[in-house]
Nucleic acid binder design. Structure first.
Length: 278
DNA sequence: ATTAATGTTCAGAA
DNA sequence: TTTCTGAACATTAA
């Protein structure tokens, strides 16, 4: 599920690799299909071994490791991927490993249970052309209110679906979209272009509140327990969810309605029909 | 024991 | 042009 808060937690968790020298690159042998990599392992080795890690950044829901020759190693965890610096949840689904030297951290690992994630190793030119292909909107953590409403307010798709469109806004996923709309008291079914300025302001404000809080709590670890931080510890924001996966429970906000689950764009949406009636 | 559902993304179709 | 559908894969709940 890694959405912005989980990916940001991963990024912060692996920051201690900055300054380390890359000693080895390993596509971990695994009886399942190997994880998708943009180039051959030989190319990765040529581009990475012997270089020093300069920075770890986040772009939308991806973690970007940059070395001192401006090669970017990009991890896209999709559904169940994790970037860690210590023991993964299981050895079985360990997919990729960087051996490190010179810092307290000895390795950077990529683990992925379902294996839907991707790893890219890109030089500057490749990175910027890939950036264009990704076509990501502004990051949900620092978009301004006017940019937010300008970009999302153009479509007649439901606001919940618009929030998930990474080309409009980067970082929000299925879980946080429901949480944000509940706090803003906006129905997920409303066409995005039908929101007025006051409503946009409210959604923009709670967007920041929810994401900042979720980062503070180190993300949400759902029932399947997949998501962990870089030290393989569960997040705790799931305890703060007001609607996500709480079908049938009393609405914690108005205390009158009951949380329901609907499907929009083939994804589960949770909301309170009482206080999110419009 | 099947079947549906799970956080994401994208190609290809409508 | 915009929006919808299904698939990639592994695991669990019904």
């Amino acid at each position: 599920m890694p959405e912005l808060p989980e990916v940001e937690t991963m990024r912060r968790g692996v920051l201690p690799v900055v300054g380390a020298r890359i000693e080895s690159v390993q596509l971990v042998p695994c009886r399942r299909r190997p994880i998708s990599i943009s180039h051959s392992v030989a190319t990765l080795r040529r581009r990475l071994v012997g270089t020093k890690i300069q920075a770890v950044e986040r772009i939308g829901k991806k973690v970007v490791v940059i070395n001192d020759s401006q090669i970017r190693l990009v991890f896209e965890p999709r559904m169940t991927g994790l970037v860690l610096t210590s023991k993964p949840p299981t050895n079985e689904h360990l997919r990729f490993r960087l051996g490190l030297q010179g810092k307290s951290v000895r390795e950077l690992l990529y683990w992925d249970r379902r294996g839907l994630g991707l790893i890219y190793c890109l030089n500057e030119e490749e990175f910027f052309s890939q950036l264009q292909r990704w076509n990501l909107g502004p990051d949900a953590c620092d978009i301004s209110c006017s940019e937010f409403s300008d970009r999302l307010g153009q479509t007649k798709r439901p606001i919940k679906v618009a929030l998930l469109d990474q080309s409009l806004l980067a970082g929000v996923g299925n879980l946080y979209a429901s949480e944000i709309l509940h706090r803003a008291k906006i129905s997920p079914l409303r066409p995005a272009l039908a929101l007025n300025a006051r409503e946009w302001k409210r959604v923009h404000q709670v967007l920041r509140e929810v994401l900042d809080e979720a980062i503070e709590y180190e993300g949400s670890t759902l029932a399947d327990g997949t998501y962990r931080n870089a030290l393989n510890q569960a997040g705790s924001y799931q305890n703060e969810h007001r609607v996500y996966d709480r079908e049938g429970e009393r609405c914690p906000s108005c205390r009158l309605g009951t949380i329901i689950r609907i499907v929009q764009a083939q994804r589960a949406t949770f909301f309170c029909p009482k206080c999110q009636s419009r």
